[in-house]
Amino acid sequence: MPGDSSCALKRRRQAWGRIGYCTTGPAAGRRPRVANVQQIDPNARRDAMRHRFLKAAAVLAVAIALSGLALGQPAGVRWRVDTAVYYIGNGWLPEALEHLQQAVRMAPDDAEAYLLMGMIFDVSGDAERALAAYGHALALAPDAAPLDVLMGDIYFAAGRLDEARRAYEQALARFPDAGTAYYGLARVQAAGGSDAAVDTLRTAVEHAPDLIDARLLLGRILRLSGRPEEALEHLLHAQRLDRNRTDVRLELALVYEALERMAEAEHEYRMVLRLDPDNEEAGAGLRRLMEVQQANT
């Protein structure tokens, strides 16, 4: 494997994107792309998986920080880790895991190998092994990146809200600018019915302006609290980042409907149905608009 650090960083970003850990920009918040479909049931865990892969700021920081650590790896360990990164990039997760397990046998203090193992366990649905691997990476490189966010997302998906809250708060204690940590904390607050979620989400999008799901959740909470005009700003921003996100378009349709901008609401409902013909909520919304139009004619 080539030893140039910029090439290694590029390979790591490409590989992490392959298993769903998007970096920044429009890709942040998208569903994971996993070639090894035998290990993944995307329909069964679609929503939970999307949240687990909102790692934009955290993973970019990991890529930058741990690529430096990779330069200090013994040659044999570095070959194992680079090979695993290549395999991950091709969707060969079991083969990648074998190399990473060998790497940590050779170098038990290799934080990057544990991080990558955690990502593979995470995307494969093995929460406990993912937590253990992330915990090792965090203990070895506590200041590399807000790895607690990765653990917090697993706790949140499992409904372990107190543990999720602690993980996000620990991340923010070391990385006060981590937008993904604020987003995770806001989800915990919203799940508990706390009004603090709105302010936390505002802080999240301040630090991570292109974090789509933070914009979406903020827009939804604002709409439900009777502030559709404020919601519209965040949803339009999210739509500009990814015009094919049906959940964003659906929420946008509901906001337009609340604002009585019916033509725009109809357009968004139809766009959702074009992207997802079986979307029941969009179908119901469109029928509701048609009934109103008929009643007014």
Rank of each mutant, 00 (worst) to 15 (best):
D41G: 03
N43C: 15
G29S: 10
A103E: 01
R50G: 08
T83W: 01
V81A: 00
G76N: 10
R33I: 11
E95H: 09
R30N: 06
G91A: 03
V85R: 05
A58G: 01
R52L: 15
V34P: 10
R45E: 12
W16V: 00
R12P: 05
L66M: 09
P26S: 11
P94S: 13
L93T: 11
A70T: 02
D82G: 07
T83K: 09
T24Y: 06
R12M: 12
Q38V: 14
L71M: 14
C22L: 11
G68H: 09
Q39Y: 08
G17P: 04
Y21T: 07
R50W: 03
G72V: 00
P94K: 07
T83M: 09
L60K: 03
W16R: 03
Q101A: 05
P32N: 05
R46H: 15
A44P: 07
D82H: 02
L60S: 04
F53L: 12
L66Y: 01
E95D: 15
P32W: 03
A15H: 00
C7H: 14
A8E: 01
T24R: 12
A58P: 01
Q102V: 06
V62C: 07
A75G: 06
V77T: 04
D47C: 15
N90F: 14
A57E: 07
H99M: 08
A56F: 01
G68S: 06
I88F: 02
R13C: 03
D47A: 15
V59R: 00
R31T: 12
L71H: 00
R18F: 08
P32A: 12
L71V: 03
L69K: 04
R11A: 12
W16N: 01
A28Y: 01
P94I: 13
A75E: 03
G89R: 04
G91Q: 04
A35Q: 04
Q73H: 08
I40R: 05
Q73L: 10
Y21N: 05
F53W: 04
A15C: 09
A103N: 06
A44N: 09
N43S: 10
R80C: 05
R12I: 04
G20Y: 01
L9C: 08
V62I: 09
R18V: 05
L60Q: 02
I40L: 13
R105E: 05
R46L: 13
R33H: 09
C22P: 06
C22I: 11
T24M: 14
W16C: 00
R33N: 14
P74T: 02
I64Q: 02
R11L: 12
G76F: 04
P42K: 14
R11C: 02
A27G: 06
G89I: 02
Q102M: 06
A57R: 08
R80H: 10
G29T: 07
E98C: 11
I19P: 02
Q102H: 14
A84M: 06
Y87V: 12
V34A: 11
P94C: 11
Q101R: 14
W92K: 15
W92A: 13
G91I: 06
M106V: 02
Q102C: 12
S67M: 03
A65D: 01
R30T: 07
G89Y: 10
A58V: 01
N43K: 13
Q102R: 10
L69Y: 07
R12Y: 03
R31H: 13
A58E: 01
K10P: 08
A8V: 06
Y86S: 13
P32C: 08
Q101T: 09
Q38K: 12
A84C: 07
G17E: 13
A27R: 08
G20M: 04
